[in-house]
Every structure is written in C-alpha cells, then in structure tokens.
Amino acid sequence: MGLREYVIRRSIYMFLLIVAVVCFNFFLFRLPTLVLGVSPVDLMISEEMRRNLTRDMLEQLYFRFGLVPDPDIFDWIYMFWRYLVNMFTGNFGLSFISGQPVIDEIMGRLPNTLLLMGTSSLVAIMLGIWTGVKVAADPGSRKDVSAVTVALFIYALPIFWFGMMLLMIFAVYLPSVTGGLISFPLYGTIDTELWPTIKDSPFGGLIMAGDILHHLFLPMIALGVGGYGGYFLYMRNNLIDVMTEDYILTARAKGLDENQVLYKHGLKNALLPMVTVIALTFGFLINGATLTETVFTWYGLGRYIFTSLFQLDYPVVQAIFMIIAITAILANFVADLLYGVLDPRIKYA
C-alpha cells in the first residue's frame, strides 16, 4: 500500500472520528436536558417571566440557544440537525453569560493559551532532550539514577500545587524579603494599571511585551517543570534502546569516538519517536492547562472551560471541546505522516 492510499484511508477515518466527536458532544451537553429535563433557558428566566412570555417569544428565546421548548423526539432530531449544520459551518452560537459569539470569546483567549503552553512546552522539550542525552550516555551511573529520581518526583508532583508554591515564594515572600527588588505578579495576564503608560509611550509595545513576559514567567516555569519529567524519561529510554542496536556497535567498531557515536548515530535515531510525541504535544496545546491557569488566573482557554462550566455556559464548553478534539485528531494525523516522512524505514500498512 502506498503513501497516497494510506493518506486517503487515514483521512476517511479521521472524518469519521470527527463525526463521532461531534455527536458525542451533542449528547454530552444535552445530558441535563435529556435526563433531568432542565434546559439552560430555565436557568436564565424565572417561572414568572416564563408565564409572561408568549409562546412565540419563548420559542425565539430557545431558538437562540439552539433548543426547542418541551421537546419531543422530532424536536430532538431537529435540534440535532441544526447542531450539526452549525458545527460544520463553524457557527458555535452565543455565550449564555456574555451574549457574545463564542468564537470571539475563544479567539480572545487563544493567544494567551498558545503563548503559555508553547513557551512552557519548548522549555520542557529542550531541557528534556538535553538532559536525556547527557544521562543516556552512561545509564546506571549516579548522575543517571539521580536524574531519573528527579523525573519520577516531577511525575508525582501536582503541578497546580507547584505553581502555588512558586507564587508563594516569588510573588509573596521574595518581594517582602528583598524589598520589591525581585517581584513577580500574584495574578493575571497583564497589568491593567499599565494601560495608560502603554498608550502614551512611544515604546508602548515593548512595555506591554515586557509586562506579559513578567506575568508569563512563573506559570511557564510551573508548566515547563511539569512537562519536563515525561520528555526526559522518554528521551532517555529511547536513546538507551537505540544504543543497544547493531548499527551503534558497527559505528563503535569503525573506531568512531564515543561522542560521535552518541550524537551522530544515537541521537538522530532516538529523536525520531520524539518528533511524533512533540507533534502530539502541539496538538494538545490548545487544551490549555486548566489547573495552572486557575492558580495563576491566566486569561486562557483552560480556565475559560472551568469558569464556563460552573456558570453553565454550555455553548462555550461545547465549542472548546470541539476545537480541542479536532486539533488533537489533526495532530495525530500529522504525527503519523511526519514519522513516515522522517523515517524511510516505515512501511504504510
């Protein structure tokens, strides 16, 4: 089977998965209506208001949320059809809370999430690969054992708590000890008090970038450390596996020095599976980090899912679910293809 056939098969399969996710989403977020008979409109208007509204007005109100009052089975089919049409035309509806289009709300938060997740993943991947290669050259050594123990420790660490500790040390204690010399903001993505300065100053953009980086630093460290353990272990184990292969033995037998064997022959091969892992990571970037964003009150998608869920703002949660799932599916697809392109030994089956 050739590459072309493989891509076509994967694309069909990908499309089916997306359809499954879309259907699942529909039922997941109508679960309260299906099971308990409570619709979002009931939460918005009181019983008294409902009595004062005419049937037409009520229907219009429900229509706004893609619902039908007192649905029977045909209404459900109609609602499902409307939902399908909306999802595939990119119309995610209005947020119950703000009344704004969901897509606008999401787009407002997306850059923050991508910034936080992107930088922290980069830090984690770089550190993971670097230290992984360092210790894999000599497995079982003291350096290796202690690095693995640290990685296991990070694996067991609740990252949101680590973030709270960072906040406590760098945003509460160090500022008071050093008299404000070393100080990180306790919350937020940007300092609103700086807006006038940013507007007036000719270097406003620089000041804003600096302020965002200042706010970014602690959550980035928290997430970077949190992701590091996994990348490190993966890199180390891969490289140790590769170093037992026959072609490494051949390289050594040719009389190459150990560094050349490690970096030229070992690392290149060990990086291959790493590339797919990284591709998958970037697929889940949009996912955000709900817990860490909540701790640092970061204005991002992860925290937005959480707050919308607790405000029963279902169109938002539904839309974010959709977007995350579709990105993840695409990332999987890309990772598979990428692996094949990078490693010519792979056969499409």
Binding site: V21, F284, N287, T290, L309, V317, I324, A328
Partner: peptide, 22 residues
C-alpha cells in the same frame, strides 16, 4: 480500538470536569 482512539482525543480533565459536574 476505535473507541479507545476516540477517548484519547477527547480532552481529559475537561471531560472529567463536565461529567463530575453533571
């Protein structure tokens, strides 16, 4: 295995949050 694939692309913590809340 398609069910497994499906569960793997659904965002984990958000799904847990939604289900636990419901």
């Amino acid at each position: 295995m398609r069910v497994v694939d499906f569960l793997l692309v659904i965002p984990g913590l958000p799904l847990m949050m939604v289900l636990a809340a419901f």
